[in-house]
């Protein structure tokens, strides 16, 4: 059985409109490519990064700090792609 990797990182939302529908869809698309479980949210409240409706409830406004947990064989690759997304402000202003 593949080793179960757990990676935790914190990101700050930098784009003006936060994680609205388009960024949420981008995140879901990336998360969906990987088999690992990815949770995202704030302290005490996390949702699956594979659910658009879930992502819209975590209140990821500009300046919000979000934890991302990735658990599974391909957690490292998944986290790298998610980090890129945050770093590029979801390709928005």
């Amino acid at each position: 059985m593949a080793k179960l990797e757990t990676i935790v990182r914190e990101f700050e939302v930098e784009n003006k409109y936060g994680i609205h529908a388009r960024p949420a869809a981008l995140l879901v698309k990336i998360a969906g490519k990987f088999s690992c479980d990815i949770l995202i949210g704030k302290k005490g409240y996390e949702v699956s990064a594979k659910s658009i409706m879930g992502l819209l409830t975590i209140e990821g406004h500009q300046g919000a700090k979000l934890h991302v947990h990735a658990v599974g064989a391909d957690a490292e690759e998944a986290m790298a792609e998610i980090a890129e997304l945050f770093a590029n402000k979801f390709f928005e202003e």
Partner: peptide, 13 residues
């Protein structure tokens, strides 16, 4: 915030 909305794959929100 999301009350009564659904996301259906291929259809959207």
């Amino acid at each position: 915030l999301t009350r009564y909305h659904m996301e259906i794959r291929g259809v959207g929100i």
